[in-house]
């Protein structure tokens, strides 16, 4: 279970997130939608403390994962990020072999047992629906894969260290429709095991893959509801104007 309580976030003096409270259940997919600059990616990055890497930022409120506030001083950020994996907009494989890309997180965490690593790589690639396409060329460079394959490789890399939460920041925006469809199918199957939060500009994608949808605007969470409700009968006029294209 993920919960935020009265989150406010600032880039310097800029008030980027305003008093955001929400709950997300385990093994669900939650989509964040909203216009550019509305704060949805900033909010996503709170859950693995990626915003810590940005200078001159400030957070108030609580961000709880399994009832623990991840911004407490006692929390080890490295441990947190093992539990909360992240996939970015552009596929970013390392200039290494396919195998080594997936094994990377394990090796960084001092796991040396070859049979375990091989097993984990295979399971992660299978979970990312990529195993069938790469099993015979694991030693080839990851950079030789197509964009869609690279993105699934990055998902496999995130899964290899056995997180329970997966953050996805526009994971299919740089992909063609076939690769996008594969990523969406993957999201659907992964939610059996993982809790997934996805930021997307593609509203039909949000409608297709998520159980709940949050609509952000100007740093506020305007509406957070079941995806079916948001896309058939949104409760707020701002949400309706945005999803029907009447915004702006």
């Amino acid at each position: 279970m993920i919960e935020t309580k009265n989150i406010d976030f600032y880039y310097g003096n800029f008030h980027a997130l305003k008093n955001i409270s929400m709950k997300m259940d385990a093994n669900t997919v939650t989509a964040f939608i909203g216009p550019s600059g509305c704060g949805k990616s900033t909010f996503l990055r709170l859950f693995n403390r990626m915003n810590d890497l940005i200078d001159n930022t400030h957070l108030t409120g609580e961000c709880l994962i399994n009832e623990q506030n991840i911004y407490q001083k006692s929390v080890q950020v490295d441990e947190l990020r093992k539990n909360v994996g992240m996939v970015f907009q552009k596929p970013n494989p390392f200039p290494k072999s396919i195998f080594e890309n997936v094994a990377y997180g394990l090796r960084v965490n001092d796991i040396r047992k070859k049979t375990f690593i091989a097993q984990q790589v295979e399971e992660s690639l299978k979970a990312a629906a990529l195993w069938g396409e790469v099993k015979d060329k694991l030693k080839k460079s990851a950079l030789e894969l197509s964009g869609g394959q690279q993105q699934r490789l990055c998902i496999a890399r995130a899964l290899a260290i056995s997180p329970s939460i997966l953050l996805m920041d526009e994971p299919a925006s740089a992909l063609d429709p076939i690769s996008t469809s594969k990523i969406e199918e993957l999201i659907y199957s992964l939610k059996k095991t993982y809790t997934i939060i996805i930021v997307t500009h593609n509203m039909q994608q949000a409608a297709r893959v998520s159980d709940k949808t949050g609509f952000f605007m100007l740093g506020e969470l305007v509406e957070f509801n079941d995806t079916k409700t948001v896309f058939l009968n949104p409760k707020k006029v701002e949400t309706q104007n945005y999803i029907t294209g009447r915004f702006g």
Binding site: Q204, A207, L232, N233, P234, T239, I243, T244
Partner: peptide, 9 residues
């Protein structure tokens, strides 16, 4: 146009 919400209805 993939209508949603009131447009879809």
């Amino acid at each position: 146009y993939n209508p949603v919400a009131i447009d879809l209805r």
